[in-house]
Design a binder for these strands. Structure first.
Length: 659
RNA sequence: GCUCCCGUAGCUCAAUGGAUAGAGCAAGCCCCUUCUAAGGGUUAGAUGUAGGUUCGAUUCCUAUCGGGAGUACCA
């Protein structure tokens, strides 16, 4: 459908949601008709946004204010003019057609009169648009069926995107900084996939380099008797200590420093005296990392290693000395970034081994050769930003085509609230430790809740009054184990994702394993709550009627009497696709977090105020009406749970039915 | 020294140049006989400082103060 050669980022930038597209068309054509003198005005100048307050409307535009100068009129005057014309346009002829998601040839038609209501002017000249609830229902329903009215959901079909993330260093710890990296990387990957791109997850690991030399040097000074180091975790901890030892010696002792430098060279050139031990401890690290990936629900299609790309990296750099891309300097081979306003960096060290920069060139070429892509994303902490500028500048000199479609996406550091994190001093929080802390806390809460639940059941059954969520069995040990694991992962991941990607995180243990408020468990709780409504429904209707029989067509083109809470939920639900689009476009899963939290809050507000299943009628006419209200609320519950589940999936978080 | 990032409520974070700057924790008060209280409601609380651009600035520009990172053989 789209040109597959096009850069996915360009596609994302120029894509607008269903409603935005309609409104932009309307506004633009009314501006053209009202003010033909504005020949320079393009459709891209029409900015559509959501009003600050929901009761202002669903969408708004401030276009009138931007035209004040050109038109020498007051913004209200301009707005009034535009609104009148828009209303005329709608009345005249406007039925719009759009493509069906699954069936491209199928054109669906809809009269705009049935989509929009209440176009008004407010504030200093904003034009506000409100969408009819009846249409919102149809729209939301179609999003979750297979008949989406929103073609934006497949805009990246045909795009091949390589996402490199995690990148932990073997022989060192997997700490909470990596946790942020992997949470973001997995979420980006899933976001791209949700727009139908083909994603290849890549993990690039530094199995050669100074840190390896330091670790192996440290190992040689430690007691590595195997009988104590039986689990992957213990092995990893052992290596972490070895690294700290090596790093300390490297800084404090000249002789050790020499030994380590010598060792480093041996590692680079795969010296026979070292290769067995190097392989052995590398394996220790990698199998430990595997346990973490499994825990976090990430799978990589390809693991790259620095040792693998190192020879080719050297070759590439050397072959571009003659043409002046690289220069000899102090025995090393450097790239003079100054010619592009950057700084000089070493690509091949004077000992002859490639630095990170040299290896990265080898990697970039290998990636494209193995799996040609439209976009290659490399994710690292933002402290590496200047480094990547230079590396990509060098790459664009030798492989311009690859460089053009390669981007570096960075994110802020994860700092400890008290003091800095450093694997050198051993002052680190490992991913495992954090997850286990969270799990411990959750398990305690779950046990307490289960105990209370059991009390509640015995109390109500003694009264013969079986109500509440007592239709559920009490969670057994095994269930508690599974659920608390998922909640722990969710809590930790969510705490990493909810923050804007550029800001540093001041890591706080309690905050990151929080279960209340703006947290992963809160969203999962809301999901489980929705599910419990349906379990109750099933219990009430003895198995049949478990799915809502609310028919959306029943409500099309009708005025609905909905409570403000129900409307509130509707007015959040429909934004899902555009939020996904925005989160993907800006590499910001935090937008999706904010959205889901908003949805959950709205739903919980509704849930608290209105009964879903408890609606009973007296007369027969009333009964029909109340049956309808009940069905609508079930539909709303169903759709909310689906969006929460989908959204959490895009964050890399799995839901649970009960908790 | 130079370059980049960040300064928003007591704390942790939001806000494509737009309307009365949103949340969550923490604090106070209220709500489980009712579909999960890991919930809901309610009270109080903020844009480091000084200029500038703009119809409009938390957002852009300049200066200044404070915090972090990078700055040739680490990644």
């Amino acid at each position: 459908m789209k040109d597959s050669k096009q850069n996915p980022l360009t596609i994302l930038k120029s894509s607008h949601s269903f409603f935005e597209e309609i409104l932009r068309d309307l506004i633009f054509s009314s501006i053209q008709k009202s003010f033909p003198e504005l020949s320079a005005f393009t459709k891209d100048d029409v900015k559509i946004e959501h009003p600050l307050k929901e009761n202002y409307g669903d969408y708004s535009t401030s276009v009138a204010m931007t035209l004040i100068k050109d038109l020498h009129k007051s913004p209200k005057e301009i707005s009034q003019h535009l609104v009148n014309l828009i209303k005329d346009l709608i009345k005249e002829h406007q039925s719009i057609s759009y493509k069906s998601y699954k069936d491209n040839k199928k054109q669906l038609k809809r009269n705009i009169e049935n989509i929009l209501e209440n176009i008004s002017i407010a504030g200093s000249g904003f034009i506000n648009f409100q969408i009819k609830p009846s249409f919102l229902i149809t729209y939301i329903d179609s999003l979750l069926g297979n008949k989406s009215t929103d073609v934006t959901t497949c805009i990246l079909k045909g795009s091949r995107i390589m996402v490199e993330f995690a990148d932990p260093n073997p022989y060192k710890e997997f700490h909470i900084g990596h946790l942020r990296n992997i949470s973001l990387g997995e979420s980006y990957s899933r976001l791209f996939e949700s727009l139908e791109a083909t994603v290849r997850r890549a993990n690039y690991q530094g199995d050669v380099g100074m840190h390896v030399a330091k670790s192996l040097w440290g190992v040689s000074k430690m007691d590595s008797s195997e009988e104590k180091l039986i689990t992957p975790k213990l092995k990893a901890e052992f290596l972490g200590k070895a690294y700290a030892l090596g790093a300390k010696a490297f800084e404090e002792d000249e002789d050790s420093k020499k030994e380590i430098t010598e060792l480093n060279k041996k590692i680079y050139f795969q010296d026979r005296s070292i290769i067995d031990i190097w392989k052995k401890y590398r394996e220790w690290s990698l199998s430990y990392f595997d346990t973490i990936y499994a825990r976090l629900g990430t799978r990589f299609e390809r693991f790259y290693f620095e040792s693998e790309v190192s020879p080719n990296g050297i070759a590439i750099v050397n072959s571009h000395i003659k043409d002046g891309t690289f220069e000899q300097s102090d025995g090393a081979v450097v790239y003079k970034g100054e010619k592009k306003g950057l700084h000089t960096r070493v690509f091949i060290a004077k000992e002859g081994y490639p630095t990170y920069e040299g290896k990265d060139l080898g990697l970039a070429v290998l990636k494209e050769k193995e799996w040609p892509f439209n976009l290659s994303i490399i994710m690292t902490g933002n402290e590496q930003e200047p480094y990547f500028k230079v590396m990509l500048a060098a790459l664009s000199d030798i492989e311009a085509k690859i460089a053009q479609k390669t981007i570096h996406i960075s994110f802020g550091m994860v700092n400890l609230k008290q003091g800095k994190m450093s694997s050198r001093t051993g002052n680190v929080i490992t991913a495992d430790w954090l997850l286990n802390e969270a799990k411990k806390k959750i398990r305690e809460i779950m046990k307490e809740n289960t105990r209370r639940h059991a009390e509640f059941i015995s109390a109500s059954s003694s009264k013969g009054d079986v109500k509440g969520h007592v239709q559920d069995d009490i969670l057994n040990e095994k269930e508690i184990e599974t659920i608390s694991e998922r909640l722990a992962v969710a809590a930790v991941k969510y705490s990493m994702l909810k923050v804007g990607t550029q800001s540093d995180i001041a890591f706080d243990l309690d905050e990151s394993i929080s279960l209340e408020g703006d947290s992963g468990p809160y969203l999962m709780y809301t999901f489980a709550r929705c599910k419990s409504v349906f379990r109750k429904l099933e219990g009430m209707s003895k198995g049949k009627n478990s799915v809502s029989n609310f028919n959306v067509l029943e409500f099309e083109n009708k005025e609905l009497l909905l409570s403000s809470e129900e409307l509130g939920v509707l007015r959040v639900l429909y934004k899902f696709t555009e939020i996904v689009l925005e989160a993907t476009r800006n590499f910001s899963p935090n937008v999706l977090c904010t959205y889901l939290f908003d949805l959950a809050q709205k739903y919980n507000g509704f849930y608290h105020k209105h009964s879903i299943l408890g609606i009973r009628g007296q007369g027969s006419g009333v009964r029909d009406q109340q049956e309808q209200v009940k069905n609508f609320r079930l539909w709303l519950t169903q759709r909310t749970s689906e969006i929460i589940q989908k959204g959490l999936y895009l964050l890399g978080i799995e839901t649970v039915e009960r908790m």
